[in-house]
């Protein structure tokens, strides 16, 4: 393999990066507070209820971040229609034949490691895109079930919009159970997601890890959106 000529590509715009980190932070907070709500700490103490409010605070933080998470998610959907080509909604659904081909390729190269052909895609590859689509569905499910549960203790109009899920699932109990079970989806997703990001950076050297900070990825000349079409400058001979 030859030493690569890399070109910088601005992949993740500021709104995408902002969304990503706010989303990541919200998810961590929601998982931690959510788990605490499901399994509060076993504290033996003799204090009076009027002196403490820690469980109430944990729940309050959970609800606040639920709103942040929800509107951040809505914003990302909006950005899927107005953002750059790497943020576009079409990346997340394998409608095109090319994407299906890439799914097979990614499975062979990155998951089974049977092949070393480089993946051309600069933004999300087809498997990553579709995985993110699944997480969007999980986001939606958590928002619906979470606000559905919250509706009973709120007068706000937003949670009321999701109150229909409770009779549909047969009561608060089932809703809460599934809301809890889906927390594990996020934990598993985070494990795999962080590993895969390190993996890509480690093997491809495109700057995958830093790209969510800087927005830039470093792409081989032959796949670079601009450099690949450039003919060698006339003055220089090979």
């Amino acid at each position: 393999m030859q030493t690569q000529t890399l070109g910088r590509v601005y992949v993740w715009e500021i709104p995408v990066r902002f969304y990503h980190w706010l989303n990541a932070f919200s998810l961590v907070v929601l998982c931690v507070t959510g788990y605490l709500i499901g399994a509060p700490l076993a504290i033996q103490q003799a204090s009076e209820a009027s002196f403490a409010y820690w469980f109430g605070k944990v729940r309050f933080i959970h609800f606040v971040f639920a709103y942040i998470f929800f509107f951040n998610f809505l914003f990302r959907i909006y950005w899927g229609f107005v953002g750059n080509r790497y943020a576009n909604w079409k990346n997340f659904l394998p409608f095109r034949k090319k994407q299906w081909k890439e799914i097979k390729q990614v499975i062979a190269v990155d998951i089974l490691q049977r092949d070393n052909t480089p993946i051309e895609t600069i933004g999300h590859n087809a498997v990553a895109g579709f995985t993110y689509f699944m997480t969007f569905l999980a986001f939606l499910f958590q928002c619906i079930t979470g606000f559905g549960l919250y509706a009973a203790m709120s007068k706000a109009w937003l949670p009321k919009l999701f109150a229909w899920i409770v009779p549909l699932m047969g009561g608060d109990f089932a809703v809460r159970q599934w809301h809890h079970a889906f927390m594990w989806f996020f934990i598993l997703f985070a494990l795999v997601h962080v590993y895969i990001v390190f993996y890509h950076d480690y093997v491809e050297g495109r700057g995958e890890i830093s790209s969510m900070g800087s927005g830039w990825k470093f792409i081989e000349k032959e796949y670079h959106p601009i450099l690949k079409d450039e003919k060698p400058a006339s003055g220089i001979k090979k």
Partner: peptide, 21 residues
């Protein structure tokens, strides 16, 4: 229309994080 929880006289203990283990 209200949960047993919302009308429970032990509810302040819940918010305070005081639980029977």
């Amino acid at each position: 229309s209200r949960r047993v929880h919302d009308t429970c006289y032990r509810r302040p203990n819940y918010d305070a994080g005081l639980f029977v283990n």
